[in-house]
Design a protein around this nucleic acid. Structure first.
Length: 490
RNA sequence: GUCCCUAUCGUCUAGCCUGGCCUAGGACACCGCCCUUUCACGGCGGCGACACGAGUUCAAAUCUCGUUGGGGACGCCA
């Protein structure tokens, strides 16, 4: 096992954002590629967000994507996994308190007695005057006597930003140098004693011995604050890598309210996790050759941080759909079957009465055609429900001609008379018929498809007919012939 | 307002570090043709981009500077 230690630190809000998934993926890929350790940490400092069912959603999303972790919090009473716990920030408050006291003792942080109202007013004034909103450092240099005089007044703790500049050698963005004076003395502990994100994040990453931190580049400026904190606390600095964000199709920040922002939306829409994973990784990483379709295992094999891109990418549904189709075709029939059957079941179709081999065969003849799992419903419903309506346009084309009844009757005769009910014999019978009449095969195939499925598109006709069985086909032909007769009369 | 990041076909990108091989390659989408019982798959072809302006150089998509566009940060949120 290498020394690489990386993590994903979601805040359990009952929602797992697509951008978070990309971040998780990159970290996970790197850990797996390097034989390192991938850690799950729950950033639930905000007690509002620490509900159990919320973290279940986050973990569920991760697990659905196939992202597993080596260290992390225990669930449902299980103990934590790993030696650097606890892995929930809500259980690490004592650690934060201890580390902040150190900063206070060393003069690297100080107590601030300004009230929220004062600060808000100051910030508003600054914005109105088009000045950068900065803390006025009112409490920065209070003497011990002045502090003592405050008595039991509530205070926040601020980090004393040092002089000079901070340089980050970002694995993705390159060297980023910032003057420390661009930052004000930011708060690290609220008056109620809770640690602020920056503090908790750094203490956790430091104490958990993270070697690399890959995260969204919306944290780029935070990174400077974090580096200053790392140094103040005396922790080893991890390498940072700030990944470009995922934008929506319009090029805006992918809003939480948009369908698809939640990773599990894609599961519900019939996408394969391995396809989503493949797509997300391609949004900001390329293998360097022309390959685009990767199984998770192949992704791990090919992944390198050197080939990470640095500009934001728009989400493209069409490409995801294409990739999903590719992954559906990559599946074995048995695997696809396992994913499709629950969907058909949920639809209320009667699968129990179908033989095992039949179900497998049905899945097999649909595999080349569908782009999402959910499409199977629309694509194969006729196997379970006899069509009672017919596609209007197809009716016009296939059944309105004067010779339609005769052709339908000829087809019915084949169905009734053919010795063996199989793809081959059916096909030969159609071919023989066409040889006799001089018609093209389509003249008979399309009207048949319409009668059997109600649609103009679907799996290969003979394959579908074989699965439907002679009896059902005959019944559907009769119903169609009736339908055509009524059509002519009215 | 201040600071940071970013910029190649409609979209994702290769090429940029180590200028010439780039009349800029691939994929999705779109269009056409082929295969074919439909759709899909597959094959072939087409459309289509170096944001702009200076500079460096014999030579710039590639290096430098500026402009513009896009994104982000500036919380007692994470």
């Amino acid at each position: 096992m290498s020394t690489v230690r990386v993590r994903i630190a979601p805040s359990p809000t009952g929602f797992f954002h697509i951008g978070n998934a990309k971040t998780a993926l990159i970290n996970w890929l790197y850990a797996r590629k390097m034989g390192g350790t991938f850690i799950l940490r729950l950033e639930d400092t905000d007690t509002e967000r620490s509900k159990d069912e919320y973290s279940d959603v986050v973990c569920g999303a991760l697990l659905w994507l196939g992202i597993d972790w080596d260290e992390g919090p225990g669930f449902h009473g299980d103990p934590d996994m790993g030696a650097y716990g606890p892995y929930r920030q809500s259980q690490r408050t004592e650690l934060y308190r201890r580390e902040v006291q150190r900063l206070l003792d060393e003069g690297k942080a100080y107590k601030c007695f300004c009230t929220k109202e004062e600060l808000d007013a100051e910030r508003e004034r600054a914005t109105a005057e088009k000045r950068p909103p900065r803390y006025n450092k009112k409490c920065r240099d209070l003497t011990p006597e002045q502090v003592a005089a405050k008595g039991a007044a509530p205070f926040a703790v601020r980090f004393r930003v040092p002089e000079g500049f901070t340089e980050i050698h970002d694995l993705v963005q390159g060297v980023v140098r910032t003057e420390n004076k661009e930052f004000d003395d930011f708060i690290i502990v609220k008056p109620n004693g809770d640690a602020i994100f920056h503090l908790a994040n750094v203490v956790d990453d430091g104490l958990m011995k993270m070697t690399h931190v890959f995260r969204g580049d919306d944290h780029m400026t935070n990174a400077t604050r974090h580096v200053m904190l790392f140094n103040a606390l005396g922790y080893d600095l991890p390498r940072f890598g700030h990944l470009p964000m995922v934008l929506d199709e319009a090029g805006k920040k992918y809003s939480k309210r948009l369908h698809g922002a939640n990773v599990l939306d894609w599961r519900d829409d019939g996408y394969l996790p391995e396809a989503l994973v493949n797509y997300l990784v391609l949004l900001g990483w390329t293998p360097g050759d022309d390959r685009e379709v990767f199984r998770p295992r192949e992704l791990i094999e090919a992944f390198t941080i050197e080939r990470l891109g640095q500009s934001a990418a728009k989400f493209d549904l069409k490409k995801l759909q294409w990739l999903n189709g590719q992954h559906i075709r990559l599946l074995s029939v048995a695997e696809l079957r396992a994913r499709l059957l629950p969907i058909l079941e949920k639809q209320g179709f009667d699968l129990a009465s179908k033989p095992d081999a039949w179900l497998t065969q049905m899945v097999g003849i649909c595999q080349e055609k569908i782009k999402t799992l959910n499409e199977i419903v629309e694509y194969a419903d006729f196997f379970f429900v006899e069509p009672t309506t017919y596609e209007e346009k197809a009716v016009k084309k296939q059944w309105e001609g004067a010779d339609a009844p005769a052709r339908m009757q000829a087809i019915r005769d084949i169905f009734a008379q053919t010795a063996e009910w199989s793809v081959e014999t059916l096909k030969h019978a159609y071919e023989d018929l066409c040889a006799k009449t001089g018609d093209a095969l389509g003249k008979y195939i399309h009207p048949t498809r319409l009668a059997l499925t109600g649609k103009s598109v679907g799996p290969g006709l003979f394959e579908l007919a074989e699965l439907l069985g002679r009896e059902a086909c005959l019944a559907r032909m009769d119903r169609a012939i009736d339908y055509i007769r009524n059509m002519k009369e009215s």
